[in-house]
């Protein structure tokens, strides 16, 4: 709107041979208005080409091949032939009825329901404490809490796999000497929470920083007003700060939901030290196994589509939910 209006006023004040302000510039050769109309597409084009190639085409392709199935004929004697045929929803049926897919989804959801709130509450508390008047050495603590985020997930998982290893783990050693008994971090039940610990360790500082940034943006005058009303620091944190950082918490929640459903590298790496993680431990591992161990790319595509769909529904659902709750939030 502004641009349109400005462009018409500009062409009005710019007759070809009379540049304004005495600057000696040639009049633009192309019509400025059409050039300006094309400019945004020019800026967008490079990104959109790659976005199309990296996002839209693969999604379309995954959906497409998920409706086909490939059969190998020839009994392994002589040159085997593969035939591809339309299969309707059979890949999806196969994925959904596969007990390990079902268990993987259940596992990831259970993981998310516990780990995401724990991590975000932890991060919020740390941010609030660091922002409170009682905190000292804020800069040091902020750096210390943020440090794990600078360690790539793969390396973090390798690192923790040592700290979990029975006999090597100094953590288990310390717990043992404190008479907590022998803790097995890699047991069939504890392993999921050991993974949750790795994820929490890695991302709490990052989420804390997002929330902390939100806290820093709150105008100081709000606190002063609250203090004049006799509010304690704790009340200010609860009644003033917390509602003001809603959008930061929403952002971190959406990121965490997406991350949780994608869970792959941590369990894949811990597989090196335990037999309690199967090749279908999470939906992502299952898709990977289907594609590269079983060569069933059609099934893998169906799982990938289901995974993307699930992520979409959960993150959009969450956004809608919070949108209805608070009017100040708009996406």
């Amino acid at each position: 709107m502004q641009v349109q209006a400005a462009s018409s006023s500009r062409s009005a004040q710019l007759p070809p041979n009379d540049p304004p302000g005495g600057t000696h510039r040639r009049a633009p050769e192309k019509l400025p208005r059409s050039r300006r109309r094309l400019a945004p597409y020019g800026f967008l084009l490079p990104f959109l080409i790659f976005f199309l190639a990296i996002f839209l085409v693969p999604i379309g392709y995954a959906i497409y091949i998920s409706f086909f199935s490939t059969h190998v004929s020839g009994l392994g004697l002589g040159p085997s032939q593969t035939t591809t045929a339309f299969a309707g929803f059979s890949n999806y049926r196969q994925a959904i009825t596969n007990p390990s897919f079902y268990q993987g989804v259940e596992r990831v959801l259970g993981f998310g329901i516990v780990q995401v709130p724990v991590m975000l509450i932890f991060a919020t508390i740390l941010a609030l404490v660091l922002d409170s008047t009682a905190a000292r050495l804020q800069r040091f603590f902020r750096l210390a809490f943020f440090l794990p985020y600078a360690i790539p997930g793969v390396i973090a998982a390798i690192l923790w796999s040592f700290l979990y290893l029975p006999g090597v783990s100094p953590v288990a050693g310390i717990l043992h000497s404190l008479h907590f008994g022998t803790v097995n971090f890699l047991g069939s039940h504890s392993i999921l929470w050991s993974i949750a610990n790795i994820v929490t360790w890695e991302y709490t500082g990052f989420n804390m920083l997002i929330i902390y940034a939100g806290l820093q943006a709150i105008p100081q005058s709000l606190y002063e007003a609250a203090r004049l009303d006799g509010a304690s620091d704790f009340q200010i944190a609860l009644r003033v700060k917390l509602p003001m950082i809603g959008s930061s918490i929403i952002l971190t929640t959406v990121f965490s939901i997406i991350g949780t459903l994608q869970l792959f590298s941590e369990p894949e790496i811990l597989r090196a030290v335990t037999t309690n993680i199967s090749t279908s431990y999470t939906p992502n591992l299952l898709a990977y196994t289907a594609a590269f161990s079983e060569n069933n790319t059609n099934l893998a595509a169906a799982i990938a589509v289901l995974l993307a769909l699930g992520t979409f529904i959960l993150s959009f659902g969450f956004l809608r939910l919070v949108q209805r709750r608070s009017m100040g939030v708009s996406l």
Binding site: Q262, A301, L307, T311, F312
Partner: peptide
């Protein structure tokens, strides 16, 4: 800039944020 399809393009790109990278890697 104001241009045709601006919001549609923006929303398409933004929904890309929600697509899990691992779901893309396989078809890619």
């Amino acid at each position: 800039y104001e241009f045709k399809g601006r919001e549609a393009i923006f929303w398409t790109i933004l929904s890309g944020v929600l697509v899990p990278g691992t779901a893309l890697a396989l078809p890619l």
